[in-house]
Design a protein around this nucleic acid. Structure first.
Lengths: 203, 203
DNA sequence: ACCTGAACACCGTTCAAGT
DNA sequence: ACCTGAACACCGTTCAAGT
């Protein structure tokens, strides 16, 4: 009874993820997370500096999951434009399947900037971004995206691609893409991704 | 002293906007807003059902301001693709100039969905979206965007355009677009917008 | 090292008043 | 109709203990 079962840190992260899924937002209290894990309301402070650090850990898990899904979607896909569409669809689907988790991943509550965001989130987000960047770089090198002649243009193109899928995900989650019916959203995503890929293949 | 100077409602909205700008987030307390306006901590409940309704009013002001800036940017611009780039640049610049306000406008704290979001936000957001939609529709009719043959394709294209500018704004605000230097961001935005316009002009 | 209980300074919101 | 003060049930975080 004195000490916890051995991995309170992990238990707290899992409890937070549960609450995030159940309540569909991250406004639950740190005290509630502790209750859920069966410990006193300040036991979490032995493992996290504050509530934000716990949420950061949950967000990082989300980025890692997203990254794995994107990577899995392009095994065996050789054309860069096709790969871009594949990852884009998987990306938006992840957001629609895990709305609260996705919102947390990009929430300003974790930090208004990379400089004050917990490192674990920054690194995880960067790794996920890397998947898109790699596809664009590959397309630039193989000539699939003829407009991209230097590193800077490639970075801008990656920004454009990520912007589109991130923005599309957020607008759909917020219900702001109406009157486009929700049921048609997944079909529309592919067309959106093709639009951005087309912008890169022609110039 | 008994009654307020006559427009406490407006004073509260202005105080909230001030706090939003100063603190760069909307986590300030409703009690603090009341203090700023010089009234007791529950006077706001005579004008807003809860804190969320006050924030919704502030968010709506943001959408109206954004809409006006977009409209002003395209007076006299006849080509639809040029208009799309113009509004896109103004859109992202608005976000970079008013980071906390922009984040609030799209915050899930106002509601997870259009159905439970305060009407005033839904209407204001829709009006702003309408500017982009009008440009796309005009381009579809004049043949500038040859891929758009029916209303559904036009809606998807509007989703793509809004997704790109919204996503671009958010990623830049979150500092996730690094290592693209912040100073080069505004130059990059135009290229991003051109990429999406190009995706619509060719097919 | 890891956990607890009491304590502090706050919240949002409600309710019974006051004018 | 509009505002106030007291009150309720919470928070996040800190601190002095306990094992």
């Amino acid at each position: 009874l004195a000490y916890h079962h051995g991995d309170l840190r992990r238990s707290l992260i899992e409890a937070a993820l549960e609450l995030l899924t159940e309540e569909q937002n991250w406004m639950f209290s740190l005290r509630e997370v502790a209750r859920r894990a069966g410990v006193s309301h300040n036991a979490p402070y032995n493992h996290f500096a504050d509530k934000r650090e716990l949420l950061a850990e949950v967000a990082a898990l989300g980025f890692e999951s997203l990254r794995k899904k994107m990577l899995a979607s392009i095994v065996g896909v050789h054309r860069a434009d096709a790969a871009l569409v594949k990852t884009g669809v998987v990306y938006v689907r992840f957001g629609l399947d895990n709305p609260a988790h996705y919102r947390l991943m990009f929430s300003a509550a974790l930090g208004a900037d990379d400089s004050d965001r917990p490192e674990v989130v920054v690194r995880a987000a960067n790794d996920a971004k890397g998947v898109l960047l790699n596809i664009i770089e590959r397309g630039a090198k193989t000539g699939a995206f003829p407009g991209l002649n230097d590193a800077k243009q490639t970075l801008v193109a990656a920004l454009a691609a990520w912007s589109t899928v991130h923005g599309c995900t957020m607008l759909l989650l917020d219900g702001l893409a109406e009157p486009l019916p929700r049921r048609a959203a997944l079909a529309a995503i592919e067309q959106v991704c093709q639009t951005i890929a087309r912008g890169l293949t022609k110039n």
